[in-house]
Amino acid sequence: MNIFTSRTLRATAIFCIVASLSACGLPRSGPNKKEIFSGSVLEQGDSFVVSVTDRVNQAAGVAPSLGFSSDFTGAASVGSDTIRAGDVLSLTIWENVDDGLLAGQGANATVLSEVQVDGAGFIFVPYAGRIKAADNSPEAIRRIITEKLDAQTPDPQVMVTRAAGDGATVSITGKINGQGVYAIERPTRTLTAMLAQAGGVSVEPSLAQVKVIRGGKTGSVWFDDLFQYPRYDIALRNGDRILVEADQRSFTALGATGAQSRVPFETRTLSALEAIAQVGGLQTNSADPTGVFVLRNETDEIAKQVMGRDDLIGTQRLIYVLNLTEPNGLFLARDFLIRDGDTVYVTEAPFVQWSKTLSAITGTIGTADSLRDLGQ
């Protein structure tokens, strides 16, 4: 094979690979900066591309807020002495005679243990009849029984005590060491006391959330806030359902980062800089520190503040741009808060594509040389 033919084969191979690269593109981790900016509203796209500044951080820096409404915080503690349907009482009745109405021969005291308050709120006591116990205190029930028996036996003495019953209970499930149904008693009338009674949370306390469902209303609070803000240590009510969960928030990391995956939050608040560090940082051989993007669906209220306009209606797609090479870039990334569902994307540096192209061309030249050698 002559030199002309050899050069023709090499040129043909190089032309084919360059044409292929132009038509199909080289492998890469995602869109480049130019392609992302092309999706801007200014370029007839459907997203707002915003460079992060101190003003943007102030408008977009909304941390997740949990707490109980006044429906929960305004409820007073359940009286520990208030009897309810389902409670169990113990009655002891002394009679001032040797042969009384209730006591046997030679005894002057009668013990009626495990007297349960029925669904209508009543108990039955021999010779005293049916007595309303629900919504009364043990002392009130004692007086009622004494008055009923006083007409039939001289100077009766009555003692009424309340045992732990199932009249006022809460259920506790989820990430708790002792799931179950617990009675509201004197020591466990508040949320923190009841959680302690159930053995405490079984996940990292700083990432635990406590949800209370009461009737048709639901409230959630961070576990740590129960101790930092006493108003959240709410009084419990009969039928409350308490669910302890681990923090379910996450963000997605893509592009030239140390890991590309769905990443759970490890702290209550997470900055863009911390999110990047959490996935192993930027890839030193490919990442473009001027092209760190955070993609988010913003409410119109926040979007209006960020964009400085009042004509936005409904959820808006915003792409926040962080340039870590700017003098204030690292500080802005440190202050920019990541929220649940965000996508953190880092573009590849421009030279990476050039490097891939050169590698492909170099490989093509090698292939052309091999073809030439085979043709000789």
Rank of each mutant, 00 (worst) to 15 (best):
A151I: 12
V160C: 09
G74R: 06
P156I: 05
V170D: 08
T82K: 07
R162K: 15
A133H: 08
S77I: 12
T92A: 08
G86V: 11
D81K: 08
A151Y: 01
Q116T: 15
V170W: 06
T92N: 05
I145H: 02
N96Q: 14
A120G: 10
T153K: 03
R142A: 11
R84C: 04
G104W: 06
Q157N: 12
T161D: 10
R130K: 14
A109T: 13
M159V: 15
V78G: 05
D166Q: 04
A133T: 15
A151Q: 14
D81A: 11
D71H: 04
S70W: 01
P126K: 00
S80K: 11
R84V: 13
G167I: 07
S113K: 14
F68W: 06
V125I: 14
V158T: 12
P154D: 02
I123V: 15
V111S: 09
G104E: 08
I172T: 06
G119C: 00
P154R: 04
E114R: 08
I141V: 15
S69I: 05
G100D: 10
N136M: 09
S70Q: 13
G121H: 07
Q105C: 06
G165S: 13
S69Q: 09
I144L: 11
A164V: 14
M159R: 10
E139T: 11
S90M: 10
I93A: 05
G129D: 04
L89Q: 09
T110F: 02
S77H: 02
T169Q: 11
D87C: 08
N108L: 01
G67F: 06
D87A: 06
S80E: 14
V111C: 00
Q157T: 07
A109P: 01
R162L: 15
G129A: 04
S113I: 04
G165L: 04
T153W: 06
A109W: 03
N177P: 05
S137K: 03
L89A: 07
S80T: 13
T169C: 03
K148L: 06
D118H: 01
L112P: 13
G106K: 00
L112I: 13
W94G: 03
A85G: 15
T110C: 09
G121R: 04
G104C: 03
I93G: 11
A168Y: 09
G174I: 10
T146C: 00
I145G: 10
S69R: 02
